[in-house]
Amino acid sequence: MLQGLFLILVSSALVNNFVLSRFLGICPFLGVSQKVETAVSMGWATTLVMTVSAVVTWTLERYFLLPLGLEFLRYVVYILVIASMVQTVETVLAKTSPALHRSLGIFLPLITTNCAVLGLALLVSLKGYNIVEAAVFAVGAGLGFTLALSLLAGIRERLEWADIPAAFKGAPIVLITAGLLSMAFLGFTGLVAQ
């Protein structure tokens, strides 16, 4: 049981990293990775949203959508849950840490449309996890997202001083770096049998 949960955690954080091998959530990955501190905060915010929404959507799926035969409403219901979660996080952040709220800017409400969060909820129902497995899967996905985001942010802080050829400045070099990072993460392939 514990070993199974550990494998789910490793799988969703490293082997099938949401950003670097499932290519979900690329928008915040590129948008909020300029500074490490902001990237880490964004990672925690997303992890929180992911975990809570995975548990809530799992419960709704099990006790509301499935018994009533309303599976076709899945997307609408999931987005509703995620959007209200994000709204809550944003309200709390705006009150408790205005500076962080400002630095996350538009990307905080955009967690709603972060395909990694919706993708996570859909993967949970696809894989038929129970509620504990779903929560562990979500925590792993969030940690993996935070890891990918902070690694890229660390490198990008360095690139500020690099003499990058004009054609590669800005988005191109970030995409190349993301590609190389994703290539390095391929090393985890096969760590957990899927």
Binding site: V36, G154, I155, M183, A184, F185, G187, T189
Partner: peptide
Amino acid sequence: QFGGYPEGVSFAILLMNAAVPL
């Protein structure tokens, strides 16, 4: 020991390269 590749040195170094700024 646990991965799909028999050798992991090059992946390990690339991964830790990425972590150097942090």
